[in-house]
Design a protein around this nucleic acid. Structure first.
Lengths: 337, 337
DNA sequence: TCTGATAATGTGAACGCTAACATAATGTCA
DNA sequence: TGACATTATGTTAGCGTTCACATTATCAGA
């Protein structure tokens, strides 16, 4: 930690290269006309001094900070880790910095504090990752002067958004079960108030109805224990249930565990399909058939959209990613058709 | 997105409040002497204008950006999600911003690009989360002018660090098996070159030796498939193995699956203990006994250390967190002692 | 009522950069 | 060879703060 050594500025570089500071600036931003020879001189002066442009000074004069904020729900769930990486990388690719603030999506104070914090840095745009409804309005109310991209929120708003096509995903999952010959298919849903829940229910119902089957939805949340609990109590026999579409893999895991304990073999007696394809899903007991969303791509697309809007070159206002069906061993045709 | 509306600056506030810009500055930073009355006037002027201090201008003059960088390995594993949240929150608590760059820890170019990127923003400190050895040297070589805190790296370096006490954790895990009466305990290790691997091996060996048992280490990595593979091939009978300490939960999951397929019941025939306590571990088949590290706390401590050093008030140079033993159903006394 | 400390406020410059506007060098064509 | 575009470079000001230093109010105590 060598202290005191003052960092070189643009004038130091200029002096060493024997040009004006403005020429150095031109080289940095490669703007205007510069002789190759001059460019080389400047470049090597920068190298030898270890010059790094001062972002603050630049931001001050251009009033562009090249920073986008990411407001992310601190509720830990599967997607965000890879999604954050992807967003950061995409931002960097576009010469931007990504800075995140974790907030409790259920607490409006927490949300506004997070936004306030990001705003202080002078973010040029905000990406919001919140799987929960109320927070969207809070954000929309608080942020009106910069573009906002919502990830995984309902696209009925006028805002920019990138989201999972939960409807199609759920439809596809259900159709998979139907195509195997199942008639009594139950959907264990996610919690109300979360964006991903409702369209998964709707997709399920749509698929059931177009196959002229009777839908049955059991409200749940996203957790293994809830899946387990529901698995303990689900009336398999009376309703002749042969398949379950769980709103996510964790529910599916809990369900499988409970059902197996009750003596129902999977997939022989009951087929189960999940949603998310968590990394462990392939090693559940049995390996779980599930829908795989490309979270990283979702993050990348959202950031791409963000930068496009900041740079005023965007056409895309919403994008939707359809999850992929991953067939493993937790689904099969029902035994006694 | 109301465009054009110029943001108010300190002079606008000053004019409205009828004071000089410097007085406003004093209120913002609450420095020096200010009459209560004046403070109130200024405060309400700020409120009514919606004034937000310009971080760039401030950074320019103070040469303090209040930003710390986080260089994080983009290899997705369990801890970081909660860890990042915790770090960001701790930074915010101290008035700092946390900005991350994801890099491939095996690629020095990627590392230096990430650092370069963060440096451009003018970070005042850098937290490095890399579970892999080579990258540490790269970072140490590239960053010499600001404090660096390493998370989960070997504390033999002179740098600041916060790390998991893998040795104690592994020792504790092994002792748990020994105390249950196991004699033939195998350790399936993590990959070489990762910090967490070696001390877990060492802790295991230490525990075995002090119980005068013969250690046996099988090299692995962190993945479920590898655990599965090892589980398929492990010679349980010849060696009379009754317990396995897996270097992480994913290995444990793969092992359990393979062993069960081979007809070995868990924990009746073979006990298994993992490491990490991933969220699903409680719902593995059977629920996994494992060591639980407090990743969030690890991140918090690292950031606390970072800010302490930036603010020159730090005494702590290294901290170590001991994981907690979580006993579930995958471990039991061996059947035929 | 004056003196001098302390409290409270004000003034100018500087941080490092880019924008906007000069100005100088070079090349092209009649 | 001069005129004029084009290429290449230089000069000045200003972005919004804080810092370092004035300067002015306030209030004891003699």
């Amino acid at each position: 930690m060598a202290e005191k050594v003052k960092k070189p500025n643009i004038y130091d570089v200029a002096t060493l290269a024997g040009v004006s500071h403005q020429t150095v600036s031109r080289v940095i931003n490669n703007a205007g006309y510069i002789k190759d020879e001059t460019r080389t001189k400047v470049q090597s002066a920068m190298d030898s001094l270890g010059y790094v442009p001062n972002a603050a000074a630049r931001a001050l004069v251009t009033s562009k900070t090249k920073i986008v904020g990411i407001l992310v729900s601190d509720i830990v769930y599967n997607g965000p880790a890879g999604m954050m990486h992807a967003m950061e990388k995409e931002a960097r690719r576009g010469g931007f910095f990504a800075i995140s603030a974790s907030v409790d999506p259920l607490d409006n104070d927490s949300i506004s504090q997070g936004i306030e914090h990001l705003r202080r840095l002078g973010i040029e745009g905000l990406v919001v990752i919140t799987p929960q409804s109320d927070s969207v309005q809070a954000v929309e109310r608080l942020v009106t002067d910069i573009p906002v991209v919502f990830i995984d929120s309902p696209n009925n708003s006028k805002e920019l958004s990138a989201e999972l096509d939960n409807f199609s995903g759920a439809q596809r999952a259900t159709e998979h079960l139907i195509s195997l010959g199942h008639k009594q298919i139950v959907h264990v849903a996610g919690p109300t108030g979360w964006f991903d829940s409702a369209p998964r229910v709707a997709g399920y119902e749509a698929a059931m109805e177009s196959a002229q089957l009777q839908p049955k939805v059991i409200p749940g949340d996203w957790t293994v224990p809830t899946g387990y609990e529901i698995g303990r109590n689900l009336d398999i026999e009376a309703d002749k249930v042969t398949a379950i579409f769980a709103a996510n893999d964790h529910l599916a895991l809990g369900l499988m565990r409970a059902l197996r304990q009750r003596g129902y073999s999977i997939p022989e007696r009951v087929s189960i399909i999940g949603f998310d394809d968590v990394p462990e899903a392939a090693y559940y007991e049995p390996p779980l058939t599930t829908m795989r969303p490309d979270f990283a791509e979702l993050g990348r697309v959202a950031m791409e959209m963000m930068l496009g809007h900041i740079n005023r070159e965007a056409t895309l206002r919403a994008d939707t990613l359809v999850p992929e069906l991953i067939i493993r061993e937790s689904t099969a045709s029902p035994a006694n058709l």
